[in-house]
Design a binder for these strands. Structure first.
Lengths: 140, 140
DNA sequence: CGGTTTCATAAAGGTGCCTTCTTGTGCTGT
DNA sequence: ACAGCACAAGAAGGCACCTTTATGAAACCG
């Protein structure tokens, strides 16, 4: 679950790390679920619809490694593993919530913008919008 | 630049769209730069270190399509194209900033957590941590 | 004995993002 | 005539991520 940050400069490496983390298809969904309280593996799996077992395991491991999630393995049998947000994880949940709220509120606006764009830039026309006649003006 | 959201339920589709958007390797870096003011294509390219021309073009198009960025083509020669955040884009920049601030403040904490994790879960040892002896207890 | 439960891991395959390299446009300055 | 500039778009290839399917451990139950 390493972010693809090959060329990112050192100063903003943590930024792009967090950004790819929450940009992952599933990570923020997991965090959001765990915001509601601790959960066992299979409960989480049922609540995060469509996630594969392998990816859920890997995502949780990554979150645990970064200190956002705590893994509590009850030595029963069959095994029972509980996952919960750490205080650090709850801190991350806060700006994440701000973003999801934005998405929820503005989803329609985004869709409208897309529709408008697709209409003006007639969608898959190969002869795309010939350039307006340039006026000869050297800039700079 | 379509997000990979195959199995996401309708209710949270805009959420995962926004999330993949800002989780893209470059998108939020671009937005952050544009927060500082309008910029021409090549200036942007120089400021977002390491981005390839192709991806910068594609990212800007996606942002324009979603209504976050405005593209202003001055009909000079050689062409001069200016990109700027729309008001909608500036709105998005706000929760994004909250997240980057979090990353900046807590980057060290994350790194420390990782180091601690790697030390306890001896890193790439194949014989990984044998399970504690389970106590026979049927749960529920 | 054989099937079930809970969690973890592995192999195989697909898909999309990203990178480098290359080509194109239309007027510029030399 | 020719190279250069500012921007765009294409092909080829790599790699990360994700999905499905299958396997394993270890004790339980019928």
């Amino acid at each position: 679950m390493k972010p693809r940050n090959g060329h990112i400069s050192d100063s903003c490496r943590p930024i792009s790390e967090v950004l790819s983390l929450i940009g992952n298809k599933w990570t923020s969904l997991i965090i959001t679920r765990l915001t509601e309280g601790p959960m066992r593996f299979n409960v989480l799996k049922r609540n995060v619809h469509g996630i594969s077992q392998k990816v859920l395991t890997a995502s949780l491991r990554a979150l645990e490694r970064d200190g956002f999630v705590e893994r509590i393995e009850h030595p029963t049998v069959p095994p029972s593993v509980e996952y919960r947000l750490t205080p650090f994880g709850r801190e991350l949940g806060e700006p994440l919530l701000a973003l999801t709220r934005f998405a929820l509120v503005n989803g329609a606006r985004m869709e409208a913008a897309r529709a408008a764009y697709d209409e003006t830039h007639d969608i898959p026309a190969p002869g795309a919008e010939p350039r307006r006649k340039p006026i000869p003006l050297r800039l700079n």
